[in-house]
Design a protein around this nucleic acid. Structure first.
Length: 885
DNA sequence: TTTTTCACG
DNA sequence: ACGTACGTGAAAAAA
């Protein structure tokens, strides 16, 4: 059988890929979606066709012979988007790493190179397969020359294949005649003029009859629609020109290299490194398979599953740096992975001859003795597991997940496979890859002993080796203080908060639920009555139909699926119809019932009547913590009815009460400090009302004559500054015109020039460095600022302005939490830190400790860091959370 | 699984 | 001309 060569139009495929795959970036902020899509398509096609050779052709920027003939050629083309342009050199680099020959020739397009190479291939007795994203290439189809046109949509690639007969079938003309059709109809995308008034239909009809342009011109008079006949007569030169432009040249001076570009040679180690660097996880297995076709390597990992061996192992374990992993699966502890420099990876499995308690018995000294420097991953989970077995203050020295989070807080996950890829540049199978997902998900215990040993011990190895890299990077980034003195100690504080939980008055919550249930019923009945029918009031789609169709209210489309029924939209419709009021009331009640009353009861512990939230330390982009199952950081407070809910949160014992401390204006204080704005700093030092001050500055009124409306408007301006202000949004928020909002902002910057300078400087530095950072050197990468897309770039600017402020505030309260926790512990208090809500700490305290604890709380929070402005903390006490605010 | 809505700082 | 404030998580509907 003849050898096959796949010839690819690089530009058109990478274009398709770019628009078919959503924008992706890797950890370095490099856009990768087009390159990903390109190889996704290429590998798929290669698998299907199994070509022996491979080559890719590209256009050059330089004008081609077509431009010299016709200056307007491709004149309507827009430039490549910046996000794609950046990926072009990358794509070529990877292709070179794969030893794929790249063809580029000044004065010619990729099409011409493909036409020429395909002819030369045929002369050598090879069968060409042509791959392109556009149909121009169809003119090259032959009886055994296939043209393949891949389409990527929604992550799936479909391919249309054309041999000569397929072109005939679909277009009714031969591939060669296809050129003549194009000469008549033109091509808008390439700006080929064609003949006016002749479109695809007419052009095909004419060519079917006369087979080529010249014959058609010779018979112009006979051509049917009169308009077409006249125009062909008048524009015959333009048609000839179009034909010339549309014809792919097949004798470009290039040589087809026989030996380079073997299709089976693309899976090189260099290419593999690129795939890892670009985070193309799904492509890695292909490369691994190709690289190590058969080598059945002996596992270097050891398994221990008897008490005797475990004892010997731990007795001989050297007192040096050790990665340990307490592996849990399906809610149960499965065993322990251990890795040291010399002993390598070991898997200690809980099961037949080694129980949990026996393993702990053997590992006891290791777990307790600080002489072992312990490297863990998600150590908070280990703290909980070991606490349940009587280890009250287990601690580790390095949490690789926390360190990885500091390297890039916007990553989706910090699992072992992520560590391996990002910090070791190698592939490690993920849980999903090993155990599957969804229905067919396996348990760790379903694996064979060898698989389990290798998988778990490998994780310990990755953890150990990644630590060295992370440690180095923490040092380079000057993040050691942040890591060792903030994030690591905080983990134990969060573990204590999670373990302690928060007590709830179950009866009060049930009563609240019942009241809400009744009111939800009542209000929904009223809504149905006013609407004239029953419908699903929770469905925005159905509600939209009722409001905007049945009742004929005028609502602008807002969402991508239909009418928006969000509260701010309904609010504007309030005067139009009394139903709106009821709907808003329903929404409020339904939210409180489903999310809060029902939601909290669902997670309320039967035995203790406590709620045990989980606090996440590696989720947010700014350094805040988050809370789930339930989220205790968004318990209602702004509206009275919701605020009532806080009455059900009570201290864990009747002798206790709550102390709630919150930072006053922490973000604005941080801003004043970072920007060094004297006016603002002085105002905070004088304990001035900051919103009132802003109002007097922006609205040019004496401080004492500021009205309450002016003050609240100024408050919105201050908020806007912190979020990275925009005139439009401020105007929306305040219900004023955009012009007025612009004026407010302008006045603000006039009075606080240092703030303006700071915001500008931050964005500029973010663009230059690629990241922004907080007072403790917490970083966030800013790939958005590389975008030429207006919306994305503007978003990036706002993020750059906001992150240092929000993030520094997060740094500060984290320090306060650690110090408060430590002081309570060292002072032997019974008081406990219960909750953090970004600028607020909640403690429950025994009556006799109250005053001492209040002092600790306020002082530790206010003294957490020293800024050029004082930090001010308000403390309230109460017997419920409601009272303590 | 994604979208819409809404609760918090 | 673009489409619009920063950071979260949960419930319900729609796809």
């Amino acid at each position: 059988m003849a050898e096959k060569i796949m010839l690819v139009d690089g530009n058109s495929i990478v274009n398709r890929a770019f628009y078919g795959v959503p924008l992706l970036t890797n950890a370095e902020g490099q856009y990768t979606n087009a390159v990903y899509g390109f190889f996704h398509i290429l590998l798929k096609l290669m698998e299907e066709d199994r070509p022996d050779y491979l080559a890719v052709a590209f256009d050059l920027h330089a004008p081609t012979f077509r431009h010299e003939t016709f200056a307007e050629y491709k004149g309507t083309r827009k430039g490549m988007p910046e996000e794609l342009r950046q990926q072009m050199p990358l794509l070529k680099e990877v292709l070179r790493a794969m030893n794929v020959p790249i063809y580029e020739k000044e004065g010619f397009e990729a099409d011409d190179l493909l036409g020429t190479l395909s002819r030369k291939a045929q002369e050598m007795g090879w069968t060409p397969i042509l791959v392109s994203g556009d149909r121009d290439l169809l003119q090259l189809a032959e009886e055994n020359v296939k043209v393949r046109i891949p389409k990527t949509k929604g992550g799936r690639t479909e391919v249309e294949d054309y041999f000569a007969k397929d072109v005939m079938e679909k277009y009714g003309v031969t591939p060669t005649e296809f050129i003549d059709v194009k000469a008549l109809m033109g091509d808008a995308s390439d700006n080929i003029p064609g003949v006016p008034g002749i479109g695809e239909k007419t052009a095909v009809k004419i060519i079917q009859q006369y087979h080529d342009l010249e014959t058609a011109i010779a018979h112009t008079a006979e051509i049917k629609p009169k308009k077409a006949s006249e125009n062909l007569a008048e524009f015959q030169e333009q048609a000839r020109l179009s034909r010339y432009l549309a014809t792919i040249i097949r004798d470009v001076p290039v040589e087809l290299e026989r030996e380079c570009g073997r299709a089976d040679g693309i899976f090189t180690p260099e290419a593999y490194q690129w795939m890892k660097k670009l985070e193309f996880k799904s492509m890695l297995p292909r490369f691994e398979k190709e690289q190590a076709p058969s080598a059945a390597v002996e596992s270097s990992f050891r398994k221990i599953d008897t008490k005797k061996d475990a004892k010997v192992f731990f007795d001989n374990l050297k007192k040096e740096e050790t990665a340990y992993l307490l592996i849990q699966d399906q809610g149960a502890w499965q065993g322990m992975g251990v890795y040291q420099k010399d002993c390598g990876g070991v898997w200690l499995e809980i099961g037949g001859d080694l129980s949990e308690e026996e393993l702990l018995g053997c590992a006891d000294e290791f777990l307790r003795d600080k002489a072992w420097k312990k490297i863990g991953h998600e150590v908070k989970a280990d703290v909980h597991l070991l606490y349940a077995h009587g280890y009250e203050d287990f601690s580790a020295d390095f949490d690789t997940a926390l360190a990885a989070y500091l390297m890039n807080p916007t990553a989706n996950s910090y699992a072992y496979d992520d560590l391996a890829r990002d910090f070791l540049a190698e592939a490690c199978p993920s849980y999903e890859e090993v155990l599957g997902k969804g229905k067919s998900k396996k348990a760790l215990s379903d694996l064979s002993m060898e698989e389990r040993r290798d998988f778990c011990a490998k994780q310990a190895e990755v953890c150990f080796r990644a630590k060295a890299v992370l440690q180095q990077k923490l040092e380079e980034n000057q993040q050691e203080l942040l890591f060792y003195e903030v994030e690591m100690p905080l983990l134990y504080v969060l573990a204590d908060m999670e373990r302690w939980g928060m007590k709830v008055d179950r009866q009060a919550l049930l009563a609240y639920q019942k009241t809400l249930g009744e009111r939800v019923e009542e209000v929904s009945r009223q809504v149905y009555e006013m609407a004239g029918e029953e419908f699903n009031l929770n469905s925005p789609k159905q509600l939209g139909m009722i409001l905007f169709k049945r009742l004929g209210l005028k609502g602008g489309k807002k969402t991508k699926t239909g009418y928006s029924t969000a509260a701010d939209v309904l609010e504007k419709l309030r005067p139009e119809h009394p139903i709106i009021d009821k709907i808003l009331e329903y929404r409020q009640l339904a939210k409180l019932k489903s999310t809060y009353a029902d939601g909290l009861l669902a997670v309320l512990d039967e035995k203790t009547d406590k709620i045990y939230s989980t606090f996440h330390q590696t989720i947010t982009a700014t350094g805040r913590i988050s809370s789930t199952e339930p989220n205790l950081q968004n318990i209602p407070i702004r509206l009275e009815l919701g605020r009532e809910l806080r009455k059900v949160f009570i201290p864990s014992s009747p002798e206790f009460c709550f102390l709630d401390a919150d930072y006053s204006q922490i973000e604005l204080r941080v801003l004043a400090h970072i920007a060094g704005d004297e006016t603002l700093i002085e105002a905070f030092r004088q304990k001035q009302d900051i919103h009132r001050l802003t109002a007097s500055q922006v609205f040019h009124v004496p401080f004492d004559e500021v009205t309450s409306l002016q003050r609240s408007n100024a408050k919105a301006v201050n908020f806007g500054i912190v979020y990275g202000i925009g005139a439009f949004s401020l105007s929306q928020d305040l219900g004023i015109t955009r012009k007025e909002a612009e004026n407010y902002i302008q006045q603000y910057f006039l009075k606080y020039p240092k703030i303006k300078e700071y915001l500008d400087r931050t964005v500029k530095e973010a663009e230059e460095n690629g990241y922004v950072s907080t007072i403790l050197n917490r970083r966030r990468a800013m790939p958005e600022l590389q975008s030429k897309n207006f919306v994305q770039h503007a978003f990036g600017e706002r993020v750059a302005m906001n992150m240092p402020i929000q993030g520094s505030a997060a740094d500060i309260i984290k320090i306060a939490m650690i110090q408060v926790h430590r002081a309570l512990k060292e002072g032997g208090f019974r008081s406990r830190l219960i909750l953090q809500v970004h600028d607020e700490l909640l403690i429950e305290t025994a009556m006799e400790e109250k005053e001492a604890v209040e002092k600790i709380l306020k002082e530790k929070m206010e003294q957490a860091v020293t800024l050029s402005v004082p930090l001010d903390v308000d403390v309230h006490e109460g017997n419920t959370w409601f009272e303590a605010k």
